Simulated assay, not measured.
Amino acid sequence: MRATFPEYVVALATIVGSVLFSIFGGVGIACLPLGLIFSFIRRPKAVITRSQYIKEATELGKKARELKKAAEALHQEERSGNKGRKWRKNVKAVQKELLLLEDDMNALEEMYPQGEQAETTWAFTILGYIGKLILGIIGLVVSVAWVAHIVIYLLIDPPLSPFLNEVFVKLDSVWGLLGTAAFAFFCFYLLLAVIAGETMLGLKLVFITIHPMKWGGTLMNSFLFNVGLILLSSISVIQFCATAFAYYAQATAAQEIFGHTLQSLRGIKYLYKYNVFQYAFVGLSLITLVYYALFGWRKRKPTGRFQLSN
């Protein structure tokens, strides 16, 4: 059966999205729960004294003035037309330092709440970190279930077990929409993992042209850029879920488009026949797990004096 033009366009978009999905999803499936758990581990343990607050605030003020001077110097170079490779490198370095400075300021405000309701603010801060721990543990269980399902059902041929597919079927037998709700939850969690992975890579790998996303501090152009990547990856999330839950989603339109049609197209089918994206997904998730095990629990050390590279 020959594929229609819209189906082939969807297939090509899925290929591009699958590359992004393998990278962002593989990283995010591990960093989403572990980031929450290690955020609890790195939480402030107690309120600092006023003298400590003044000392830390003074250091941050010095750092802010250094970055302001660096930004003004870069602005002068831009006006003079000197926008070479060194200038772009320094701009990225200043942007990175600004993000780190904002993190340090927020951390300092957490450790020394002010105002008439300082005790209440501190209590809510602690409750927030406890909530992160609970969500992180739940997310870790879901992430492990996802990776185990990929290995058991997709990478091993023939599959050892339907695993989550069978769970959804049994939940449907308990109540009609329970299995569907669980299916939707796992699909939505996978999309959250893509967003988490993209956020992590955008902040960590500054040398790659990925606009960083930060809660309450994302520029509009960066936001639109990342929304485009997420929308492109969402097609692959649908395709991935249709493949991973083929037993549960059999005889559906999604299974027909992303299952039979996509895997029979010339030049494309081999990527899915040999599970290229699934292996990349699992591999990156394991690499991220090792990274967090080695470095995730450590608190970031404050940087020294900032200087532009010559």
Rank of each mutant, 00 (worst) to 15 (best):
L108P: 06
Y292R: 10
V151C: 11
Y291C: 01
S39M: 09
F24T: 03
I156W: 03
G128C: 03
V282Y: 11
Q117K: 05
A11F: 01
A253D: 13
S161Q: 05
K204L: 02
I210R: 08
T252D: 07
V194H: 09
Q278N: 13
A93S: 08
I29E: 01
Q76P: 01
K299Q: 07
G28H: 05
A93T: 07
A244N: 02
F223A: 12
F38I: 00
V282S: 09
A11C: 06
R85P: 01
L192P: 02
E102G: 09
V27P: 12
Y53A: 06
D104G: 06
C187R: 02
P6L: 00
Y129G: 09
I138Y: 14
E116L: 06
A13G: 15
Y189E: 04
H260F: 08
V206K: 11
Q307R: 15
Q117R: 08
A253Q: 14
Y274M: 03
F163V: 04
S234I: 02
V142E: 10
A182F: 11
A280P: 03
Q255W: 04
E109F: 14
E66D: 08
L133V: 11
G128L: 04
K273L: 02
D157V: 14
E77R: 05
L154S: 13
G267N: 05
C241T: 15
Y292Q: 15
N226H: 03
A3E: 03
G35L: 09
V151E: 06
F258P: 07
G28S: 14
E78C: 01
L135Q: 09
A64N: 15
F207R: 15
G179Q: 00
L164K: 08
L262W: 00
I134V: 07
R298W: 12
S234Q: 01
G259N: 00
A3P: 02
I230G: 05
L74T: 05
G259Y: 04
L98V: 09
E166V: 12
T125K: 12
L99F: 15
R266F: 10
P212T: 02
I210G: 05
V282G: 06
T209D: 14
R42Q: 10
I23H: 13
I238E: 03
V9Y: 12
A242R: 01
F163L: 13
P162M: 04
V91Q: 14
A46T: 04
F40A: 15
F185V: 04
G216T: 09
T218R: 00
E72W: 10
R50L: 07
G35E: 08
T58R: 09
E7V: 13
R300Y: 05
A13I: 01
R88I: 05
